[in-house]
Design a protein around this nucleic acid. Structure first.
Lengths: 195, 195
DNA sequence: GAGTAGATGTACCACGTGGTACAGGCAAGG
DNA sequence: CCTTGCCTGTACCACGTGGTACATCTACTC
């Protein structure tokens, strides 16, 4: 391969750095970050490991950006939830429908892998850890209060909803039984959001 | 250290292999298995990495035994749940009370780390993956049917309970806020087990 | 067209890894 | 006492790792 023609046509988008990060996230979502090596990663996404070091400084730097990307995704979802007028259960249902896409599930799997690191207190996951529960509970609890619940009940309920969502998501990832998990979710929604 | 005197007094229990495994599980529960190296592990638990290879064949073999140990712990809890006459919520509450012990929480953290591997389909986690949801749902659903629920409702409810427990456990591990999480759990129990 | 700065490829390095060879140590049993 | 079989420690090996040096290539700007 003399790489004769420049052929920039398929160049995805963004800076080369962004492209590398996106490809890394995708690869890691599929293969996990447990025994990731820069070389194997580079081969898989079509670069040299030199490039990864060049653009991200170190493996640790790259991983930190992956964590940051996942965290940013979380915050984006949260922001959408906080901004919209729709009641929480509607938002949950929309999120839930998205999980029919296997690619989405892969990303959620990565999310859990990173959460496992975060609850271990690994350096670099501090911010993620802060994003994990509090802000969600706050937003959803505010929604509950707006609908007339006492603040403490709204808080506990929000926290419960968060747990249900994550617990059932974990279930879904383990069993791949979308229907069964969906039934459980509907049961919860019916019991706690009587509208 | 010429290891002059044999001094077998503190020898904990079981075969040396058992002792090594127990020490490994303990260490891994505290430090995670993300960048575990046989040497570092051996130093930490007071052996040589040679011993680990000798007794477990390979690092992979050792890790497999750790996974098996965690899995066995799960099955033991499940067996206790299936055998006892007490209704499921009582059992849940007992489990929940156990979490006040930080050491227990450390082990639960390890459980999640391994679950993250299992939902990734890592080789060696197949059995764990089977243990993860189905048997629990079955046992708890049977409990529900015994209390008069229609089978499909009992199943969905059991699945929901499983998810709540795991979701709130995850919450607890992330926030260390035992009280807040407990309030959410009580809310769930009150709504779904009206006795 | 020369110069410049970002981007990329090749070759290399030191290091820590999992695993092995081998030489014992230590008890039980003849 | 000598053997036998489980253990354990020391030294070593080949390999893959993250990271670096350096040469290059490719735009873009003057």
């Amino acid at each position: 391969m003399t790489s004769s023609v420049p052929d920039r046509p398929p160049a995805p988008a963004g800076s080369p750095r962004d492209r590398l990060l996106a490809a890394t996230v995708e690869h890691v979502a599929r293969h996990g970050l447990a025994d990731l090596s820069l070389r194997a990663l580079a081969d898989a996404i079509g670069t040299s490991h030199r490039m990864l070091i060049y653009h991200f400084g170190s493996k640790e730097g790259l991983l930190a950006e992956v964590v940051a990307a996942v965290e940013a995704g979380q915050r984006e979802i949260l922001a959408g939830l906080a901004a919209s007028d729709e009641p929480a259960p509607v938002a949950v249902r929309r999120f839930w429908r998205g999980l029919t896409d296997p690619a989405v599930r892969e990303h959620e799997r990565l999310f859990f892998e990173i959460v496992a690191l975060a609850i271990q207190g690994r350096p670099g996951t501090e911010r993620l850890r802060e994003t994990l529960v509090e802000p969600w509970v706050e937003v959803v609890a505010a929604d509950g209060v707006r609908r007339g619940l006492p603040p403490d009940v709204a808080r506990a309920q929000a926290r419960l909803g968060m747990a249900v969502t994550r617990g059932l998501l974990l279930d879904l990832l383990a069993t791949d039984d979308l229907e069964g998990v969906d039934a459980a979710m509907e049961l919860f929604l019916a019991a706690f959001v009587p509208e």
